[in-house]
C-alpha cells in the first residue's frame, strides 16, 4: 500500500492525540478516584451504585427515626421507673397503714406521703420527650395523658417506626399499659390508697394491697416491653450500621477506581504518549531530513 508523507504525519499525529486523550482520562480517574464519572461511562455499574445509594438514603431515614425512638424509649423507661418506685413505696406505706397499731393521725401522715408520691408518679407519667411529645400519650401525644385524678386520657395504639427500608419496630408505649386494660388503673389506685388512709380504713387498705401488687407487676411488665423495644431498635441500629458499610462498599466497588490499577493505567498511557511523540519526531525527520 502506498503511504504518503502527509499520511504518515497524520497517522502519527492522530496516535499522539489518542495517547494524550488516554493520559487525560487516566489522570482524571486517578485524581478523582472515580471510575464511573457519569452514567454513560458504565450504565450497569452506575445503576447498581445508584440503587445502593437509594437504599442507603432510605436506611438513613429509618436510622434517624430509630435514634429518635430510642431516646423516647429511654424517656419512657425513666417515667415507668419513677412510677414503679412510687408504686413500691406506696405499697409499703399501705402495708404500714393497714397495721392495727396505727392511729388515725398516723394514717393521715401516711396519706400525705402517698399523695406526694402520687403527684411525683403523675408528673413522671405525664413526662415529655425532647421534641415535646408526652411519652405515654400514644397517638394523642400533644395532650396530657393522665388527668389530675390519675385517669388515662391518651391514645391506645403504640407507634411503629421503620427500622430499614422494609422492617418496622415498636417505638413507644401507650399509657393504656397502666390502666385496667392491662390489669388495674395504676394511677387512680394510688389515690384510692391515700383516700383509705385518710378515711382511717385499714380493711380497705388491706383490700388494695393485692391491686397494688398487680399494679407493680404491671409497671414492671411495661418496663420489660419497653426494654424489649429498645433491644429490637439497638439490634436494628447495629444491622443498619452493617448495611451502611455493605452499601458503601458496593457503591465503591461499582463506581470508584482501583487506585493501583488506575495508577498503572496512567503509567502505561504516559509511556504510550511518549512513544507516540518519539514516532512523530521520527516521521517528521524522515519526511524532512534537513531539519
Amino acid at each position: 500500500m502506498r503511504v504518503t508523507q502527509g499520511r504518515m504525519i497524520d497517522i502519527s499525529a492522530a496516535a499522539t492525540a489518542a495517547s494524550q486523550a488516554k493520559v487525560a482520562a487516566a489522570s482524571t480517574e486517578v485524581t478523582s478516584g472515580m471510575r464511573v464519572q457519569k452514567p454513560s461511562d458504565d450504565p450497569a455499574a452506575w445503576l447498581a451504585a445508584q440503587r445502593a445509594d437509594v437504599r442507603r438514603t432510605l436506611a438513613e431515614g429509618a436510622n434517624t427515626a430509630m435514634s429518635t425512638s430510642r431516646a423516647r424509649l429511654d424517656d419512657t423507661d425513666a417515667a415507668l421507673l419513677a412510677v414503679g418506685e412510687s408504686a413500691s413505696q406506696i405499697r409499703m406505706l399501705a402495708v404500714q397503714g393497714s397495721n392495727a397499731s396505727y392511729s388515725d393521725a398516723n394514717r393521715r401522715e401516711l396519706a400525705v406521703q402517698v399523695r406526694a408520691l402520687f403527684a411525683s408518679a403523675l408528673a413522671s407519667a405525664n413526662g415529655k420527650s425532647a421534641d415535646g411529645e408526652y411519652v405515654l400519650a400514644g397517638a394523642t401525644s400533644l395532650t396530657r395523658p393522665f388527668n389530675d385524678d390519675g385517669t388515662y386520657a391518651g391514645g391506645s395504639d403504640p407507634r411503629d417506626v421503620p427500622t430499614s427500608d422494609v422492617g418496622q419496630a415498636v417505638s413507644n408505649l401507650a399509657g393504656t399499659a397502666l390502666t385496667s386494660a392491662s390489669g388495674v388503673d395504676v394511677m387512680p389506685l394510688f389515690l384510692r390508697v391515700a383516700e383509705a388512709l385518710e378515711a382511717n380504713d385499714p380493711t380497705a387498705l388491706q383490700g388494695l394491697l393485692g391491686q397494688l401488687d398487680t399494679g407493680i407487676k404491671q409497671v414492671a411488665h411495661s418496663r420489660t416491653r419497653v426494654g424489649g423495644a429498645m433491644s429490637v431498635i439497638d439490634q436494628a441500629q447495629v444491622a443498619h450500621a452493617q448495611l451502611g458499610v455493605t452499601l458503601s462498599s458496593e457503591i465503591s466497588r461499582q463506581v470508584e477506581s482501583d487506585t493501583v490499577a488506575a495508577a498503572t493505567n496512567l503509567a502505561k498511557a504516559s509511556q504510550q504518549l511518549e512513544a507516540s511523540r518519539q514516532v512523530t519526531s521520527f516521521v517528521i525527520s524522515l519526511v524532512n531530513p534537513g531539519r
Binding site: 431515614g61 434517624t64 427515626a65 430509630m66 417506626v161
Partner: peptide, 14 residues
C-alpha cells in the same frame, strides 16, 4: 423525600 417521611414517623408532631 421518602427518607424524610421515615424520619418524621418517629416524631410526627415535630
Amino acid at each position: 423525600m421518602f427518607s424524610r417521611f421515615g424520619a418524621v414517623s418517629a416524631s410526627p408532631t415535630d
